[in-house]
Design a protein around this nucleic acid. Structure first.
Lengths: 331, 331
DNA sequence: GCCTAGCACTCTTGCTTGCTGACTGCTAAG
DNA sequence: CTTAGCAGTCAGCAAGCAAGAGTGCTAGGC
């Protein structure tokens, strides 16, 4: 790949991203300052086509990049510098302090989507913690309790517990006491052992309930990462085909798919396109980066769009937002 | 409105819901067992049009219901009986116990969307509680703490607190103790008064931090209802026009709009269509019902779709699911 | 050996036209 | 009040046509 071919390819991808249309040899000529004729560009295009970087949708049309063409463009083009207004907007967002964690993350996804005009995903910080730090019981119905568990790292689960027998409200406080004494400041494994002692202090009827509650606590061990999706309405305009919109919406709904796409990337920034995302023939690109420094405060932010997304700008924005979030959570 | 006109109108709406197309006089004849000719039906249709129940998209087309026509249909038609398989599916869902509150609500919205094929919304239970029941501090960064607050009713907020000075990990436990002693088991108003006493026990540097943390606790008072939206991918197929899909997606993203549409309804089942939802000329219908018995465990479940939604079935499904959720949370 | 002007060829796109079929409204009679 | 019959209207579809955009190829120039 010589210099001119590279320039032609990058100009072509740039232009295709801008217009969404096949790009003609003349358009490339206008966008570059190569001192050659359109016929020369056409020769280069033919070579690029032979190498699999571009294709022609039909004989008398311009070229559009293949997935390989996009890949080359992404790997060789520098991220854009953001306009001062945009940088300022991001800085302001993270300057003004956000009080509620969930709100911060939700609004971060909205910030990303506002600036990039693509749907955005934020994966919440890990907050993985083995030890139980707090435990609270709330009675919802005669047979139903809500048990709120807080781990040492700040992870919260709200467990529902259905009791075999009705319970009086004055018993709830006593049960809570018993559970707090036997579970708090212990890992779940340790707690299980400690359990055998706890029931002895309680009336016979309540011993069984403690066991039920403790079982519920055990179950909550699984890490549940929180996911914040913003800007789904954007995608009505991004993909022409309504069936593609449907597909992407479905993807955004399935938390597991999103985690696989975004969550399983190595630390740092990554751009994945089309087939690299698993399913073939998928007009999708995902730009993501990690935030946070230790496992408690770290997660990922991501933006997704069609393959012809504005990578230069989007990558920059995602990185800036990732840094802002890092500062907010761990400085 | 005589009997035959009512029958004609209801048959027309039924058929329009089924096909989405304008309904001709002949089609109505085939769907009803009226012993009249199509010309008679045409006369009735002309009368219904004069009364504003139906309109003709163009001269030589059948009729489609107006918003008033839909309203009449909804108010006079009985909900459908569900197929045994569907009823069983709902029962099974609520029989198998769900351990995590957030999961239960999320999956309930998915159940609704699965059965009805429309997007669904679940508004979480109130869980409003004034008194602070638990408080936990977690250190995220040198200047950032995460404070988890649990109210008496089980409501959880995760407050981020930025400190003016760096903090050592051994101080966190002491701060937590101080806050627990002064805030737990008090309402936020009472806590504010109690605050003046707490700092005396602590080293000078930490007194200011306690004040900062207490301020954060005060701020979290605002009730934050949780919203679970499922089945957004459905709407790619429900509305023809992509700009409508865009509009509805936007609506589903704005929690405030959803709360206004769904949350502000009186207890029981309600069906709102088009203009009744605020903005005019809006092809939208919302079927919702309340669940739970007291303020702690009660919220709403809702389904939304185009005005030509299958009301008879949808109303039934929403009500059954609402009842199931009520049992799960408050029996 | 690389570049370029010129030209023939291809294929999409948009427009027009005409036709068919679906419904209605109206009229006059039962 | 109902109905048979008929004329009138309009959307939807397909075919045909012209214009325009863009390429590939060839032959000649540096």
């Amino acid at each position: 790949m010589d210099d001119r071919k590279a320039a032609v390819l990058n100009a072509l991808v740039d232009e295709h991203i801008r217009t969404g249309q096949p790009v003609s040899s003349r358009a490339i000529l206008e966008k570059t300052n190569l001192n050659v004729s359109s016929a020369t560009v056409r020769n280069d295009l033919a070579a690029l086509e032979a190498d699999g970087y571009v294709v022609q949708p039909h004989t008398s049309a311009g070229r559009i990049p293949t997935e390989r063409g996009f890949r080359y463009y992404i790997d060789t083009t520098d991220p854009a510098r953001l306009r001062a207004g945009t940088r300022e907007r991001i800085n302001e967002f993270f300057m003004s302090f956000h009080h509620e964690l969930r709100n911060l993350l939700k609004q971060t996804s909205e910030l990303l989507t506002d600036i990039t005009a693509y749907p955005a995903v934020v994966i919440g910080p890990g907050l993985v913690g083995e030890k139980i730090h707090g435990l609270h019981l709330v009675q919802l119905g005669s047979h139903v309790l809500l048990m709120v568990l807080v781990t040492e790292a700040g992870q919260v689960t709200q467990e529902l517990v259905r009791l075999p027998t009705a319970i009086e409200s004055h018993q709830v406080a006593r049960l809570e006491d018993a559970l707090v004494r036997s579970l708090v400041d212990r890992t779940l494994a340790e707690a299980r052992e400690a359990l055998d002692d706890a029931p002895r202090e309680l009336p016979a009827g309540e011993a069984g309930i403690v066991a039920t509650l403790a079982d519920a606590a055990m179950r909550s061990e699984a890490e549940t990462r929180e996911l914040y999706v913003g800007g789904t309405s954007m995608l009505a305009g991004l993909w022409e085909d309504i069936s593609k919109v449907h597909f992407i919406l479905e993807l955004l709904e399935r938390e597991s798919s999103l985690m696989k796409l975004v969550g399983s990337q190595p630390e740092g920034t990554s751009v994945l396109i089309g087939p690299e995302l698993g399913s073939n023939e998928l007009d999708l690109a995902v730009v993501s980066t990690s935030y946070g420094v230790d496992v408690r405060s770290s997660g990922r932010v991501a933006v997704l769009g069609p393959m012809r997304m504005n990578y230069r700008r989007t990558i920059r924005v995602v990185e800036e937002v990732g840094e802002g979030l890092t500062d907010s959570l761990s400085s």
